[in-house]
Simulated assay, not measured.
Amino acid sequence: MAAAAFIFLYGLSYGLVLCLVALGLVVTMGLMRVINLAHGAFAAFGGYLAITLIQRAGMPYALAVPLAVLAVAAFGVVAERLVYARLYSKSQLDQVLVTIGLNLVAVAVLSMLFGPNIVPLQLPDALRGNLDLGLRTFEVYRVFAGAVCVAVIAGLWWVFERTSTGARLRAAVDNRSMAQATGMNVPLLFSMTFALGCGLAALGGILAAPILPMEPMWPMKYLVLVLVVVALAGHGQLTASIAVAAIVGIVDTGGRYLFPQYGAFVIYLLLISLMIARPDGLLVDRAERA
């Protein structure tokens, strides 16, 4: 029971943080139809910037986190106008090659600025320590990170599924010329949506820092897991991403806990199996696919 509780609780908290990072890619790739394989770089920028503000500038955690998220989102607006806007009309291969190149540049810049080693994130005293849950103890920080992820994910779902903003974005993606003819400022809408995706990535990177420590190879190292969530969730499926990320987190945690020598391969076996059985997404209804 203690082992099962560990796998479930730690896997769920890990999956929620992973989901937050992945949702930024779901927004840019699933809704805007641009393949942004440099997404992990924005998450790493958020994590490193928060660490710098806390440990070098002396800012409190509660102030450093939103400032880092806003800074990365603003950087995302600049990057979207200068680079990504030129990729919207390009082929998927061009998008993959350019964004992978940007990821490699980000790795080199992070190595130059922060060195090759892991840089830890100092947590405030309120987020340290453990909670006694009976079967085992559980880190206070993971409860906090999970709660933040749930709140942000719920807000994002509401914006895209229950407001006119989500409807306008889908209309602009499906038929850009018609959307512009109705008076929509499509370039501004795309810039703001891309900034949102970058901000989500940054927040996910910050929350993940104590769980997936910051290192220069972070943008490449964890990109695969984010892509697993996006692939299994299906094209632009925000709600499905939550369930898929939880499953990925629990399976990955369970594999590493039960089979430490081979645990890293369990998640890839899951991906291969599910992509064969459900190529359009884990929770996509068969009737819907037909």
Rank of each mutant, 00 (worst) to 15 (best):
Y14M: 15
G15Y: 01
V17T: 02
L18C: 09
A22K: 05
G24C: 05
L25H: 01
L25A: 03
T28F: 08
L37F: 12
A38H: 08
G40T: 06
A44Y: 00
F45I: 15
G47M: 13
L49P: 04
I51A: 00
G58S: 05
L63Y: 09
P66G: 02
L70I: 03
L70K: 00
L87P: 00
V96N: 05
L102Y: 03
N103G: 14
V107Y: 01
V107M: 06
V109E: 07
L110K: 00
P124F: 11
F138M: 12
V140S: 02
V140K: 07
Y141V: 12
C149P: 04
A151H: 06
A151I: 14
V152P: 09
W157M: 15
E161V: 11
G166Y: 11
R168N: 14
R176C: 12
R176E: 10
Q180L: 14
T182G: 05
M184T: 06
P187G: 08
F194D: 07
F194Y: 05
L203F: 00
L203K: 02
A209C: 08
M220N: 11
Y222H: 10
V228I: 15
V228H: 01
A240Y: 09
S241K: 05
D252I: 11
G255N: 06
P260E: 00
P260W: 04
R278C: 09
L283H: 00
A287S: 13
